[in-house]
């Protein structure tokens, strides 16, 4: 499968010259299978450019939403396939205890926040609530599991053949596991990440920033390295960059974390346009 990052920023779109290199668009990742089938992970503002880059006659798109916070949803109304007649769009995401996925999505896709309502979209739209049993989309086998983040939030593990990708853009595993000193089966997200070829994971803060934001649902870069090492992933990508961090800040933070943790796995900070080939 081929993985492309279209939005790497967390919390708020952050355009401007000081964020141009790592990117200012919020969470959106494209996954293309060997048969050409397209998955879209989250609908942050990065999804607008992705929609423009897709073939106009693409028959089907599957959008997998980790949760419905605005930075993961804001681009949805601007995703061209939603407004294209004949395209099958399947949206997968978590319900809440009392509200269906449709009802939750409609809170954004309706006035006064957005001028178009769900039923007016021109595509052939189907909604699916996760978590459920393993999802099969073409050759993809997808597992969704609730993870530690405020409001119902899932992570995804996507497998095609021997290749595996785990995506947890908003995740605070340290909250429930005290610096990972508990057995692995008590660590949020471990089951999804275990042995993955590529882990795209929340790394929003420095350690000192995290100390001021415990319980907000995000991770410090050092914790992310600890988690990825615990899970035995092959490659880790720091994701969901804080809006206050400029390119220069991220360069400095990343260098410091490498020096502090000396990771045994491949680690890189997510950059808009990055691609990964997993086999």
């Amino acid at each position: 499968m081929k993985v492309t990052l279209w939005g790497t920023r967390g919390s708020l779109p952050t355009p401007g010259p000081e964020t141009a290199r790592y990117g200012g668009n919020t969470s959106c990742v494209q996954v293309v299978g060997a048969d050409g089938r397209v998955l879209v992970l989250d609908a942050g503002t990065g999804i607008r450019r992705l929609g423009a880059a897709l073939p106009i006659d693409i028959p089907r798109i599957d959008i997998l939403l980790t949760h419905l916070h605005m930075d993961h949803l804001q681009g949805l109304g601007f995703f061209r396939p939603l407004r294209t007649r004949g395209v099958q769009v399947h949206i997968w995401g978590p319900a809440s205890v009392l509200l269906s996925l449709r009802a939750r999505l409609a809170r954004y896709l309706s006035p006064p926040l957005f001028p178009v309502v769900l039923r007016e979209l021109e595509c052939d739209l189907t909604l699916h609530q996760v978590p459920a049993q393993e999802i099969r989309i073409g050759n993809f086998r997808i597992t969704a599991q609730l993870i530690c983040h405020p409001d119902p939030t899932v992570g995804f593990r996507i497998v095609e053949g021997n290749a595996s990708l785990t995506y947890m853009p908003d995740h605070e595993p340290a909250l429930g596991s005290r610096d990972f000193s508990v057995p692995r089966d008590w660590v949020s997200g471990y089951g999804l990440a275990r042995g993955a070829d590529l882990l795209i994971h929340d790394a929003q803060y420095t350690q000192s920033e995290y100390a001021q934001r415990v319980g907000w649902g995000h991770s410090a870069m050092t914790q992310t390295v600890q988690f990825a090492t615990l899970a035995g992933v092959k490659q880790l990508v720091f994701f969901h960059h804080d809006p206050s961090h400029s390119d220069r800040d991220l360069d400095r933070m990343f260098a410091e974390v490498l020096e502090q943790t000396n990771p045994s796995i491949t680690v890189s900070p997510a950059m808009e346009g990055d691609t990964f080939d997993l086999r």
Partner: peptide, 17 residues
Amino acid sequence: MVQKEIEVILARHLASY
């Protein structure tokens, strides 16, 4: 089970405090 459910993980965490 590879991993406990998140509600159980958080319940343990709360209990531990």
